[in-house]
């Protein structure tokens, strides 16, 4: 996967900045996408292009449990978030949605907005084609990789319920 970087290296970017609560009265991704990252960068939505990466510092997505944060970024056609580290609910929500969330300590400091990044999932590296640098990222845990490959938690629940012939379905 190749895309441009949008870098916000400050730690503790919280879900209120990713998608402010004033927009939580809807949950359609296309609507949420119009306000993605609005309180940290009001121009983000006009700059982002399909397949781009959001590159951030540590503890990204702290704060509320709103999955709207993941949906807003996905709705804005962001290919994934490359963070120093993630707050747990955001990370969980990303995995459950099959949305790419990669932990790569120090990447945001070594990357500039506009850099061309290539994420190679198989070899576990991020290549910066603008600077030539290569960054090894923390391996995605097996269960998270499986969940992402299965298309997210909902898909795996659907499969499981079909297999067991659950009375709920």
């Amino acid at each position: 996967m190749i895309g441009r970087a949008h870098v916000y290296s400050r730690p503790h970017i919280n879900t209120d900045e990713i998608i402010p609560a004033r927009y939580l009265n809807v949950h359609a991704e296309a609507e949420l996408a119009k306000h993605a990252m609005e309180d940290i960068d009001s121009e983000f939505v006009s700059k982002v292009q399909p397949g781009d990466f959001v590159v951030v510092g540590e503890d990204f997505g702290c704060g509320s449990s709103r999955e709207h944060a993941v949906w807003a970024l996905r709705g804005a056609r962001v290919a994934g978030v490359l963070a120093g580290s993630f707050a747990r609910i955001f990370y969980r929500n990303a995995i459950n949605n099959g949305f790419l969330a990669i932990e790569c300590l120090g990447l945001s400091e070594a990357t500039s907005s506009g850099d061309q990044l290539e994420v190679d999932l198989a070899s576990g590296v991020i290549i910066n084609h603008t600077t030539g640098a290569t960054h090894r990222f923390s391996p995605i845990p097996d269960f998270a990789r499986e969940m992402m490959q299965a298309g997210g938690l909902l898909k795996s629940v659907e499969k499981k319920l079909k297999a067991t012939g659950s009375p709920g379905s």
């Binding site: 949950h27 449990s65 709103r66 999955e67 993941v70 609910i89 969980r92 929500n93 459950n96 949605n97 997210g152 938690l153 909902l154 629940v157 499981k160 319920l161 659950s166 709920g168």
Partner: peptide, 11 residues
């Protein structure tokens, strides 16, 4: 989040 909620409500 909401996906977790849906999964838990179902199962």
């Amino acid at each position: 989040g909401s996906t977790d909620l849906a999964a838990a409500l179902a199962t």
